[in-house]
Design a protein around this nucleic acid. Structure first.
Lengths: 242, 242
DNA sequence: TCCGACGACCTGTCTGGTAGGTTCGGCCAT
DNA sequence: ATGGCCGAACCTACCAGACAGGTCGTCGGA
């Protein structure tokens, strides 16, 4: 009963340290004035004066919110509301892995769950340009087959293109958040495949996903994505990544 | 091409402002020393001395990482590595909604995708205690039917219990992140249902999920969860929430 | 042996100041 | 009249020092 704790969002403004109070005040300011991405915010001096605290306190508050990509700050520039950004979740995920709070396999389970959905949605919602881009990225993987680094870049771009085609920015953010982890695990999976035939099979998997999306067949796209993920997880398991 | 940009994680330590450099230095410190949750960190004075910057800079860096729940700070306490926390993503999601960067329906699509999986996983992995707790929470919703606030608390606890039973902390974090949004939308959906029969149907949906999980039937649990989400989305749509 | 008080250490906050970047309006040239 | 240039006002980035209050280990007494 009563889980009224934990929310630092916008309770009564009198709790915790001054910095925390400044953060909630700034959050309220954005909400109450219905500000959107790009809209300007009061400078730190003005905010410090308004709250009756020192500039150092407001600076810490602004910096914290900038770290969460809620606002955008910079030397001489006036603070502005920031557009949604994937890097935050990426940093958190990376930290969770680095501190052994979660495993790579657990991350891949989440990724698989999300990307099965993005594949299906992309098949339903993609326009011609998106379908072309996705197909082109799969083709690029095949074309640059000998250069692992390039294949990885195409691979990452492929998954993000699929997510973008799902027309849900949240999915795009989530998929983008996995990029940090993917850059660490991808080379392991690539080199753990026994031979070039297996590596090429991975690329064919991407092509199958692209075909399903281009054809507007959500079932096929989802199935191909599932197969692709199963193969990737298997490759990582074979390399001893748990 | 080659998108080597964007990662503030751990490139060469000479880029951007001093605060950013301090953040990457602290991140590296945690990674290089393989620190886990609860492990102590150098104090801000020590860190300032080591980096050759003022204490204010280090303070902003520490505060930023505390905002991301990567570290834990407090008056007089020495900084420590922090356990993974759901509130960060919740704040970001709330901000995205408040600034009209994403819609409630888009969030529910993501939630549905994730919770379908947690229901299936919970059916496969839950132990007796977890099954009992999930069943008990569904029963509590029925028992407190007349008190909407209590029903909401049970509802939220129910979904988090299911996520916990999936035995993947990432799913628990993601589901927990939606709590902030749920607290805003839940009353809308509840009151948008035409009569008590429809409201009770929602509770019966939870009971069906609980039965599937308790029976260890992932298909049934997933199907019940899907039905539950469809009903919720419909109720929100009926209330004009897009 | 256990418990409480004390002190060293640390963080939270403030003040005041310097350097360097941004922005915007006015002015000059076309 | 218009478009580009320039400078002044404003703002942020960072620094140094200081003080109040909280935490935690330690030492002495019961």
């Amino acid at each position: 009963m009563t889980g009224t704790a934990a929310l630092p969002a916008d309770d009564r403004p009198a709790s915790g340290g001054l910095v925390e109070r400044a953060v909630t005040a700034l959050t309220r300011h954005i909400r109450d004035n219905r500000l959107g991405p790009g809209d300007p915010l009061p400078g730190e001096s003005a905010f410090a004066l308004e709250l009756g605290v020192s500039r150092a306190v407001v600076r810490e508050a602004f910096r914290s919110m900038a770290m969460l990509k809620l606002i955008d700050i910079g030397n001489g520039r006036r603070p502005r509301v920031c557009a949604i950004d994937r890097s935050v979740l990426g940093i958190v995920l990376d930290h969770a892995v680095q501190t052994d709070q979660t495993s790579i396999q657990q991350i891949y389970d989440v990724r698989r769950t999300i990307e099965l959905r993005t594949a299906a949605l992309a098949a339903l919602r993609r326009d011609a340009t998106e379908a072309e881009r996705i197909t082109a990225l799969a083709a690029a993987m095949r074309a640059d087959f000998v250069d692992a680094a390039k294949v990885m870049e195409h691979d990452i771009a492929f998954h993000e293109a699929v997510a973008a085609a799902s027309r849900n920015p949240l999915f795009a953010v989530l998929v983008g958040a996995f990029e940090v982890i993917t850059r660490q695990t991808w080379p392991i999976g690539w080199s753990s495949r026994a031979n070039d035939a297996q590596r090429m099979a991975s690329i064919e998997g991407h092509e199958a996903i692209a075909r399903g999306i281009a054809a507007g067949d959500p079932r096929a796209a989802e199935a191909a994505m599932a197969e692709h993920f199963d193969a990737s997880v298997m490759a990582l398991l074979a390399a001893g990544v748990t």
